[in-house]
Design a binder for these strands. Structure first.
Length: 428
RNA sequence: GUGACCAUAGCUCAAUCGGAUAGAGCACCAGACUGUGGCUCUGGGGGCUGAGGGUUCAAGUCCCUCUGGUCACCCCA
């Protein structure tokens, strides 16, 4: 073994058998709520044409510019066949919707998806290069009720999963009409005060003014705090949309807060944007982010359609869930029966009983390493077996098995072919 | 991508100023208990000190590079 061990790539993780419980708790909660809310499951490939994300996610976004894993499928430079590992789920969902002509059958569709996404960035806790998202896309509806529905859905999933210390922030960043107006407004306002801004924000003036709103530097925050918020500059349509959304959320009793400085990173968001944050996560505290993307479908060559959606970060959410609960023991398999072999000649007969137990639908296991009876009992105890079936020369001679209740310590005998029945009776 | 900090047994951590064979708890294995788990006691296996180079009589300890992680930034789930 002088070979050097190959390790997993930076920012990628294995999920080991005992780590699945929380993972499934979240996914099961999500599936329950998707069914209740009427969202259909959609799976799309992990690889897509790079152009899908360049057009969809946005050419100038950091994700597309620097973080996409892209290879040239034809093995040639500029062959036009570049394919990418998906960095996010929305463009593929829209692509699938358009490609399957679903909009011609029924314009309005609601989907959910879950799976791995890939972004080449510096790994950190809850921020991996292969990470997982659970997301929804409601395509073809412009009602603020739909915005409310997705927000309530995300909340329902978290409540169902037992998560507590999170808060929901919402904002409206304007439509194609009023956002450019606001952006210009913001730019002229801040340009006069550029000496108060950090170097990053000076750069943002031209590239992405809205991002200055959630800069973490104190001086920038102060400068921005005096700004007229976008809420006052929204067009009437956006104002109405936002007001209705809040009315609906209020009526549902959802605990949320307005954050006029909430801005999302992707280009395609319009109007409603929201984030769910968790207190345990530190600076990067968003566990779910979403909003409306009314221009995206048309931009990708489809009809003019309005959409809303969100994406939950699975790893980030799991960190939040783990922070809230006591670190519990590694989950064990808890078989119904563990078969213990007293002597070597009995081993094959033990396996015979093991198969019978399994055939009866009981979860059962045994030792395969030829260890002592004592060691086998320890294994039985550690895996959390409810019963042991003990077999040695004595039992085989008498054509019976010895059974032991691991909680009470009581032992009794059963006929060789009645072992499984005896366990089933004891379990009932 | 930028900056800072960190890396010692399966896990959590020790190791004085650069000094001798790198220790402890937990976990694991075995015995006490000859056909039986938990509790107790006793013993045992386990380490290229993340990898590679350098300084030195001497490196876990100092310097450089790499890898990985953590934190903040960029950005975002």
């Amino acid at each position: 073994m002088s070979e050097k061990l190959i390790k997993s790539l930076a920012g990628t993780r294995d999920i080991l058998p005992w780590q699945w419980e929380k993972w499934h708790a979240l996914h099961d909660a999500a599936r329950r709520q998707f069914s209740i809310y009427g969202y259909g499951e959609l799976a799309t490939p992990i690889i897509e044409e790079a152009a899908l994300f360049i057009k969809g996610t946005g050419e100038s976004t950091e994700i597309v510019e620097k973080q996409m894993y892209t290879i040239d499928a034809a093995g040639e430079e500029d062959s036009g066949n570049a394919i990418s590992l998906r960095p996010e789920g929305t463009p593929p969902a829209v692509r699938a919707y358009l490609e399957s002509d679903l909009h011609k059958k029924q314009k309005f569709q609601k989907f959910w998806y879950s799976g791995p996404m890939f972004r080449r960035e510096k790994p950190q806790k809850g921020r991996l290069r292969q990470f997982h998202q659970i997301g929804v896309e409601a395509i073809g509806g412009d009602s603020p009720l739909l915005d409310a529905e997705t927000i309530l859905l995300a909340d329902a999933i978290y409540r169902d999963a037992g998560l507590k210390g999170y808060r929901t922030c919402i904002n409206n960043i304007g439509c194609e009409e009023c956002r450019p107006r606001y952006r210009e407004n913001l730019r002229t306002y801040l340009r006069d005060r550029s000496d108060e801004l950090c170097p990053d924000c000076v750069r943002r003036l031209d590239r992405n003014v809205l991002r200055i709103l959630d800069c973490k530097n104190a001086p920038c925050k102060e400068t921005v705090a005096d700004m007229p918020s976008i809420t006052g500059l929204l067009c009437n349509g956006c104002k109405d949309h936002y007001r209705t959304l809040k009315t609906v959320l209020d009526a549902q009793g959802l605990d949320y807060q307005e954050d006029p400085h909430l801005v999302r990173g992707l280009d395609y968001y319009t109007q409603t944007v929201y984030e769910i944050k968790h207190e345990e996560l530190g600076a990067r505290d968003t566990i779910c982010g979403g909003g409306r993307y009314d221009g995206l479908v048309a931009q990708m060559g489809g009809p003019e359609l309005s959409c809303v959606g969100f994406a939950m970060g699975v790893e980030a959410t799991l960190i939040a869930m783990e922070a809230e609960t006591e670190p519990d023991e590694a989950t064990s398999l808890n078989p119904d029966v563990y078969v213990v072999c007293f002597d070597e000649p009995a081993r094959i007969k033990c396996f015979e009983q093991l198969t019978m137990l399994r055939g009866a639908g009981l979860s059962a296991d045994m030792d395969y390493e030829g260890r002592s009876a004592k060691a086998q009992m320890r294994s039985a105890d550690r895996t959390g077996a409810d019963f042991c079936m003990l077999i040695g020369g004595l039992e085989i001679e008498n054509c019976e098995v010895t059974l032991k209740d691991m909680r009470s310590g009581q032992q009794w005998k059963a006929a060789w072919d009645k072992g499984a029945d005896a366990i089933l009776d004891a379990l009932a």
